[in-house]
């Protein structure tokens, strides 16, 4: 699925995350998190799983996380992808 425009979802509230999806070459994931040291690899794995599930490509995914749980990460990313035209 091709990303067509910029899309965002979520907030910077505690236990939430803000996801920004925009068109780019390849697939780039950038993560900022208040728990980056401990959990960056788990957040990345979860994001990659969701991206793979939808076959997303040609996107930069910028994530600002404040300690969100898995299901929030999944929901915010899917919403941002949908707004970016990458999901039908």
């Amino acid at each position: 699925m091709k990303i067509q425009r910029k899309g965002q979802a979520g907030t910077m509230q505690s236990s939430d995350l803000m996801v920004i999806v925009e068109p780019a070459d390849g697939l780039v994931i950038e993560i900022e998190s208040t728990v980056k040291k401990q959990f960056e690899h788990l957040i990345r794995a979860r994001l990659e799983q969701v991206l793979a599930k939808h076959g997303a490509e040609g996107a930069r995914i910028s994530v600002n996380d404040r300690g969100a749980l898995d299901y929030a990460i999944e929901a915010r990313l899917e919403t941002a992808l949908r707004r970016a035209g990458g999901l039908s």
Partner: peptide, 20 residues
């Protein structure tokens, strides 16, 4: 949570306005 709420709203609008 108020600072996060205000900043979230302003950042979302800034990104919508085209600032990365």
């Amino acid at each position: 949570p108020l600072l996060g709420e205000i900043v979230s709203a302003l950042v979302a609008r800034g990104i919508e306005a085209g600032f990365d």
